[in-house]
Design a protein around this nucleic acid. Sequence first.
DNA 1: GTTGTGACTTTTT
DNA 2: GAAAAAGCCACAA
Length: 121
Amino acid sequence: MTPHADELPPKIAGGFRERVLAVVRAIPYGRVATYGQVALLAGAPRAARQVGGVLHRSGTEGGLPWHRVINAAGGISTYKVGAGALQEALLRAEGIEVGPDGVELARYLWRPEETEEPGVG
DNA sequence: GTTGTGACTTTTT
DNA sequence: GAAAAAGCCACAA
């Protein structure tokens, strides 16, 4: 019985993990999203940490664009788990500029309600 | 059922 | 402006 389960969109079933995976997969090419944003879209605006945990457990496989997820500062937090170099390379492979301070959110941050193209500004 | 932890975020000093 | 601490949620043991 989940009398509170209907609060979330039925389009995405399962637990918090599946919603996170669904949101991450919704990130368009050449765009990045923060953990907080993914968590927010997943229905848990305070579960940003868990977003990383879900992706970590999910692994670097599965066709999941996990590399498009970064922290609120636009930096890569995966260096702690040894995936920083990989993520940085994947981001550059999508045309995203990765500077010494990370990625420029003002330019590459994904807007779920807009279809704006990156690099246009 | 309880305890501990983390690929974070925000607030305070 | 930079650094430190607390808060927060979900999952694993």
